[in-house]
Design a protein around this nucleic acid. Structure first.
Lengths: 245, 245
DNA sequence: GAGGCACAGTGGCTGAGCCACTCATTCACC
DNA sequence: GGTGAATGAGTGGCTCAGCCACTGTGCCTC
């Protein structure tokens, strides 16, 4: 994690390589249903000519799309179009939220609801399973949160670290990993949600209640506290995105 | 989905392209910690020479690894090694379970626990939100399950379809997507878990209880029924994998 | 009819080369 | 001494042209 310097509050210019753009173009086309599921994409040579890129560059994009679960490429046959919502899994999330046409608020509100429900459920689990070390590291995050200036970026980052540590406290690697998938959506576009983290003191207080319940191994209280925070913050996230999207 | 013919019970030979192997090799090396986090990989020209592949093929593999969240490649700098457990998200799951050295049963049992807990939780949600169409499509899956012969592959496939429909009944796209990530782990290696699906009648009965509760909108019963099934089947999955792994 | 074979279409992979970006160094200028 | 422009080495981005390998089809032979 980078330190919280003023220049961090300015988003770096987004630079796209040719392969980035080809991947996005084809990915959008598939998501939009412009190719039938199970049909094959046009031959690479044709597709490259149509996109006016070299076949090698096109193939780089196809490698990515295959990894994403958008297509399955088979030697001698072609690239078969899959249904990303069936096969792509969590790696698809940020694609679904940040569409070429702007932010898809329907998907985003689903995402925020999922965050609220799963976050609360897993905080309950964390309260049951937490070790003393977990309590300590959560405490340290809250201390850091008390020390930083009222920088939304820093608050946002520490909130994410807090929940990552909650996931660790469940003692199940899979939850950490699934949570990362959801975190990744807003890590990539953190600035969109910046306005949801202007109230440092409020965040600190709410997470403090979560920590207290986890420390006390009070599963019900932990679930409630997490749910309260995530619900309220989720509304702020959605508002922030709507203002920008 | 392919029909349930006898030849489906034989797994096709796994054929790996050069790029597959390069990706696996480098991915394993990063997972094993053979490169420091934040360090750069060797220059592409050197790495290609070392692996005895063309630079283009190496780059295909790097495109995939970048998409997987293993590395971040920057023009003029190099490919920076990331910590996949932090950045890779759910797309990492099957990598974590199926290691070059064999199946990682610790991760697999975490995965199975996660499946049990989340599956039960989301079945509860599905019971609260299901539409009549959801009940119908779940019913159709169970009918199919009644019709197929005692083919473990078919049972396994239909069980997965059943739970995919449960996820759809939550009316939240994100849950469908997250579930796909977990399904993907065993879709890729279905034969490993085959032995957990030999008791067709048992599966049918257990899922029938889930459906009944969902239909009755009885959240508690639905959660319980799903938990019971997933717990028991999870044990069978782990046993099956251990016998083969 | 069954099996073998040839061919067209498609992706896999290579080698060579030039372009574009980044960073550290150098050096001229104030 | 500080500043900033120019340079050059190192690295990834992208292209081009071509051959190899796999798949499915349809013909041909027996």
């Amino acid at each position: 994690m980078p330190p919280e310097t003023p220049e961090n509050s300015v988003e770096p210019l987004e630079r796209q390589s040719l392969v980035d753009r080809v991947t996005a173009r084809l990915g959008e086309a598939i998501l939009a249903g412009r190719y039938d599921r199970g049909a094959t994409l046009p031959p690479e040579r044709d597709l490259a000519r149509a996109l006016q890129v070299n076949r090698t560059s096109l193939k780089h994009a196809l490698q990515r799309l295959e990894q994403l679960g958008f297509i399955a490429t088979r030697h001698g046959i072609g690239s078969v179009v899959l249904d990303p919502t069936e096969t792509a899994g969590a790696r698809l999330l940020s694609y679904l939220v940040f569409r070429a046409s702007g932010i898809d608020t329907a998907v985003l509100s689903d995402l925020i609801e999922a965050r609220t429900l799963l976050g609360a459920f897993l905080t309950r689990l964390a309260a049951e399973r937490r070790s003393d070390d977990d309590v300590k590291s959560l405490g340290r995050v809250l201390e850091d949160l008390g020390r930083v200036a009222d920088e939304p970026d820093a608050v946002q980052r520490l909130e994410l670290v807090f929940f990552r540590n909650i996931m660790r406290a469940t003692k199940n690697q899979i939850f950490v990993t699934l949570a990362s998938s959801m975190f990744a959506v807003y890590l990539g576009r953190a600035h969109v949600f910046r306005d949801a983290f202007t109230d440092r003191a409020g965040v600190q207080k709410a997470l403090g209640r979560v920590l207290d319940a986890v420390q006390a191994r009070d599963a019900d209280a932990a679930e409630r506290a997490a749910h309260d925070y995530l619900k309220k913050n989720g509304k702020a996230l959605l508002d922030a995105a709507k203002r920008l999207g």
